[in-house]
Design a binder for these strands. Structure first.
Length: 322
DNA sequence: AAATGTGGCAACCGCCTGCTA
DNA sequence: TTAGCAGGCGGTTGCCACATT
């Protein structure tokens, strides 16, 4: 025979927990520790199913739970882990101390997922629905082969190369696909992974930097982000991407710093900024964005939508990559 | 001020896995 | 060996607070 049922479902309370019930559960677990959920409700004087008690404790009452808004670092971690693990919320939560799988799941469904959808990114596969990631025709041309991927190091952050490598090692599906296609589409798959993760990396980097700057500005007495003065020439309509010193995806140049002035010289001495897809205000050393201050969420979306406008610059000579 | 719409989140539901008798 | 349960997990629901009309 198996075990006896964990609880008699008749007469058990359901729905939101009251403070009194929470207190009973906390007190009992403080004395006896978590576990033995079957007998816990009866011993603690609760008219609840043991399963309900366990959920309440693990998702809400546990003392090590970290509540409040998710940080950019946490969001970055969630997105990256989700791209590898999928909806394995418990596995993702295990890598985010203080966060529960339920909380991460809710945050994904209510925030990240919707934003990715608005940006044209499939939240399940993390692949773009836009055509720019479908570089098959370009990559299968006679102008590019596997060795050219090495040249992409100029375009791709080394950390992303490492991430792509770890993804390839950890993602069985990718491994199989690459093995199946190593003589034909392998480089294309790798490039897709690189580009997708470059997107994620730049997105999170921008979020972090923008948030840090936002916090720094907020700490200045009598100075709110709205009244930070903008300097020099306007780059309105030229929110990027840019070609800078022969490189695209220059990290510091990807900031969609709406309402903040930004000096290109901060990022690189003697920099030149060339909008890839716009003819206005070329070679500006300083620029500003004069759009109204938007929420962080809007900034994220704004950045990503701009990023999705990525075009391969004509100045990029693929023949050289050979 | 009231009605309606929307988003966030706590909690439940049901399936799966591993353990136990 | 196997029936049956506890615990774990992901999906879904429904309530509540806030925003909008």
């Amino acid at each position: 025979m198996g075990r006896t049922p964990c609880c008699d479902k008749n007469g058990l309370k359901k729905g939101p927990w009251t403070p009194e019930e929470d207190q009973k559960l906390i007190q009992y677990i403080q004395i006896h520790g978590p576990g033995n959920w079957r007998n816990l409700p009866k011993n603690a004087g609760l008219q609840r199913c043991g399963k309900s008690c366990r959920l309440r404790w693990t998702n809400y009452l546990r003392p090590d739970i970290r509540r409040g808004r998710f940080s950019f670092e946490e969001e970055e971690t969630i997105i990256q882990l989700h791209s590898v693990l999928g909806n394995k919320w418990s596995a993702i939560a295990a890598r985010l101390p203080g966060r529960t799988d339920n909380e991460i799941k809710n945050y994904w469904n209510t925030n990240i997922r919707k934003r990715l959808l608005r940006m044209g990114i499939d939240p399940v596969t993390h692949s773009s629905s836009l055509d720019f990631l479908d570089l098959s025709s370009l990559l299968s041309s006679t102008h590019l082969n596997l060795s050219s991927l090495l040249g992409l190091q100029a375009l791709v952050n080394p950390e992303i190369l490492k991430l792509a490598n770890s993804l390839l090692l950890s993602n069985t599906e990718n491994q199989e696909l690459l093995l199946q296609n190593q003589n034909s589409q392998g480089p294309e798959l790798l490039l897709q992974i690189l580009l997708q993760n470059q997107l994620l990396h730049n997105q999170s980097t921008i979020f972090q930097q923008n948030n840090q700057l936002h916090n720094q500005v907020s700490e200045i007495p009598n100075c709110t982000p709205q009244n930070v003065s903008c300097s020099s020439q306007s780059m309105e309509g030229n929110a990027g991407p840019y070609l800078m010193n022969g490189q695209i995806f220059q990290e510091n140049m990807m900031l969609p710093l709406q309402n903040y002035s930004y000096s290109a010289s901060d990022a690189s001495e003697n920099s030149t900024i060339q909008p890839l897809n716009n003819n206005n205000n070329q070679n500006s050393q300083n620029f500003s964005f004069e759009t109204p201050l938007s929420s962080i969420e809007e900034e994220k979306e704004s950045y990503c939508s701009n990023f999705m406008k990525f075009e391969i610059p004509e100045s990029l000579d693929f023949d050289d990559l050979l």
